[in-house]
Simulated assay, not measured.
Amino acid sequence: MSHTAHIRSHRKPRRSASTIAMRAGVAGGVLSTLAVAGASGSANAAEPVTQTLELPTLTADLAAQIAQSADATQQAAANYELQAERDAAAAQAAKEAKADLAEAKKKAAEEKRKAEEAARKAAAERASRDAQRAALSASVEISSESGSNSGSGSASASVGASAGVSTSTASGSAAAVVAFVRAQVGDAYVSGGTGPNSWDCSGLVQAAFRQVNIDLPRVSQAQSTAGTQVSLSNLQPGDILYWGGAGSAYHVGVYVGDGMFVGAQNPSTGVALKSLSYDPPSGAVRVL
């Protein structure tokens, strides 16, 4: 025996084949596990990471703010719509006002034209009456001079002859008409009056001719064309006198003879007996 035989060898003892195989299997399993884990880690690294955000909780204050914002938006929309409607209404009103103004100007121009025409006609009629009044005044003066030389009886006849009117006495129906209007002298003048104590001009004339069963129109315009037109130089008692145009007369009266007429003149004079020279008529019609 060697002197070193009792000393344990420092070399590692040889492993048996089974031990080696077992350890190789364990190592292989570990390596396989690592490989799988690595592959899994690579796969996980390739997948996108999804981040989850938590939404804030809808509190009562936030809900109130959202509601107020919605109300404000709705109110703004309503205000805009209301303003649009107001603008449209203002534009329409301006358009209508412009049209109304044009129509008013047109009417005003027409009224002005009519007024000017009426003024011209009135001026012409007034000039005609003034001329007739002057002629009658001159005739009266001449008759007065003649009467002073030949007596009052011949003076009355001269007035009638100079004025170109009849001095004959009314008879028959004419006498009844004349008597009626003379009986109303002193009555009041009232526009639209038809008696028995107040009259307007055409109301008096109509009532006078009703005494002899003649129904005349109510107004002076129609009465001025109710009979046959006669010359002012050939008047007879009972003739209807008119002032203004035939068919557009503004006043009527009844000739009673001797250059005189009776008419419901105006509120200040009432029904009065006047000379033709007081207000010369424009024309006359004979109904009887």
Score class of each variant (00 low, 15 high):
residue 207 A to E: 11
residue 136 L to S: 03
residue 188 A to Y: 11
residue 259 G to M: 01
residue 148 S to A: 15
residue 38 G to M: 01
residue 226 A to T: 05
residue 245 G to P: 07
residue 203 G to E: 03
residue 15 R to S: 10
residue 185 V to L: 15
residue 195 G to N: 07
residue 31 L to T: 09
residue 127 A to Y: 05
residue 50 T to R: 05
residue 214 I to D: 05
residue 213 N to E: 06
residue 41 G to C: 08
residue 21 A to L: 12
residue 229 Q to K: 13
residue 111 E to Y: 12
residue 84 A to M: 06
residue 22 M to G: 15
residue 244 G to A: 04
residue 158 S to C: 12
residue 257 G to D: 00
residue 17 A to N: 10
residue 166 S to N: 08
residue 203 G to F: 07
residue 19 T to N: 06
residue 248 S to L: 11
residue 86 R to F: 09
residue 105 K to L: 12
residue 150 S to A: 10
residue 31 L to E: 01
residue 59 T to C: 04
residue 39 A to Q: 04
residue 193 G to I: 02
residue 19 T to K: 04
residue 115 A to Y: 13
residue 140 V to G: 01
residue 193 G to H: 09
residue 195 G to H: 10
residue 10 H to C: 13
residue 285 V to H: 11
residue 127 A to S: 11
residue 47 E to L: 15
residue 52 T to P: 00
residue 137 S to V: 12
residue 147 G to K: 01
residue 63 A to C: 02
residue 64 A to C: 01
residue 240 I to E: 00
residue 209 F to P: 10
residue 91 A to I: 09
residue 54 E to S: 11
residue 263 G to L: 12
residue 233 S to P: 00
residue 38 G to Q: 03
residue 37 A to F: 11
residue 66 I to W: 04
residue 140 V to C: 01
residue 106 K to Q: 13
residue 268 S to W: 07
residue 197 N to C: 13
residue 257 G to V: 05
residue 70 A to T: 10
residue 257 G to R: 00
residue 140 V to D: 14
residue 188 A to P: 13
residue 53 L to V: 14
residue 247 G to R: 07
residue 267 P to A: 13
residue 240 I to F: 00
residue 58 L to E: 03
residue 166 S to E: 08
residue 24 A to E: 12
residue 167 T to E: 02
residue 254 V to R: 00
residue 7 I to C: 07
residue 177 V to M: 07
residue 168 S to Y: 06
residue 167 T to Y: 06
residue 182 R to W: 07
residue 62 L to K: 13
residue 175 A to G: 13
residue 244 G to I: 13
residue 110 E to L: 06
